[in-house]
Design a protein around this nucleic acid. Sequence first.
DNA 1: CGAACTCATCAAGATTCCGTAAAGACAGCG
DNA 2: CGCTGTCTTTACGGAATCTTGATGAGTTCG
Lengths: 231, 231
Amino acid sequence: MSATAPRVLVVDDEPQIVRGLKILLRSAGYAVEAAETKADALVELVSRPPDALVLDLVLPDGGGVEICEEVRRWSRLPILVLSAVGDEREKVRALDAGADDYVTKPFGTDELLARLRALLRRSVDVGGSPELKIGELVIDLSDRLVTRNGKPVHLTPIEFDLLRVLAQHQGRLVTQRQLLREVWGPEYGDETHYLRVHVAHIRAKLEPDPSRPRYVITEPGVGYRLRDPAA
Amino acid sequence: MSATAPRVLVVDDEPQIVRGLKILLRSAGYAVEAAETKADALVELVSRPPDALVLDLVLPDGGGVEICEEVRRWSRLPILVLSAVGDEREKVRALDAGADDYVTKPFGTDELLARLRALLRRSVDVGGSPELKIGELVIDLSDRLVTRNGKPVHLTPIEFDLLRVLAQHQGRLVTQRQLLREVWGPEYGDETHYLRVHVAHIRAKLEPDPSRPRYVITEPGVGYRLRDPAA
DNA sequence: CGAACTCATCAAGATTCCGTAAAGACAGCG
DNA sequence: CGCTGTCTTTACGGAATCTTGATGAGTTCG
């Protein structure tokens, strides 16, 4: 779960239900996305993984059970199954397929929210924190830790923030103005000198040969980019 | 969850229910212990932590809600609450107190087993031991005791809470704000000097050389982390 | 070739942040 | 009432970090 509002993906083919859930969950402080089919859901799950999944068991292009099984191959994402079917065998099937909870419609909204809170609470800190990998570098954003070939490298706050912004754009060019704004604030857009000094420090700490940079590449007159030297 | 049969602690004051649950759970391959009161349950939880807890909400010497809250102060043990009460407020209260699932009596046995499987599946390697070990330190969260090389170290309440928060994040960085909020409360987010003096006290009590900290590492401008010096 | 520009590096200040000690405030307890 | 343990508050020296200025190398373009 991130520091910002937890993201919940709702998968259901009935527009009314989706609308209701969106309102309910948003008013409870969640960021809500929706998908109507199994295919859409899987695309969304892979491209922008949410913090939890609320899943109707009956979908046009395949059961929610299949989604559970699919997701469980690579993720521990909390899954809450909604269903009009109260049949016990159906519950067992969904739970054993990977669902974490099963609520039958019609459901009490307070109970649904409480069960979702319980799921999210358990998932905090389980499963390693999100890491960005660039060549020999591993950047753990939540831990503010950078390692090169497994060895931790100490960066000062500004150095880490600079590297983070570069890493989050994954190889793309980041302009000087953009970097300055994101690290120092909007009013520092012209202090390009700061960048040179701190980029030099970063290179000294994590480039094999700081005078011949392989990770932090400067684009003269424009900005910097963080690239994977192997790629 | 251990390699042997998972251990389940059943807490209920009705002998019939206990007997039924024992038979059911044992036939499903679990090792089952039972307790009839809140006090017994807590003793058993601390002395021989099970892999999961099945808990009746109504007990002679205090509610199951209290047990949930108590357990959650030091453990992530999966808790499945059983109750004859289907009232939604009661469910919300139990779930928010720390329960992971809530099943109303009478329940389908297959569903109960499936929900228990789902809980245990998620809790893999999130051990329910009330002790955290970091190098030579052992932190017993349930009776608020710290030992170094087996010798008890006396910490004041605030010192213990600081150490607890650091330990519960297992080596990860904890920001100053986060520490202040969790130990003092949300409105103390900026009193960073509290941290400095109490961290100094902690180091004086449990670092071999307080001037060269090996356990409580400071990240200048960001926060602290508790690390295992051997790792 | 030289002027103008951008960048890298180095070396001080300047500033912020941290560790430490010590003293005052406050509650619990005999 | 005095004692004890704990927390808060203050003060200051030193460390870590950031800023600032100076210098030289490389590039572009007239």
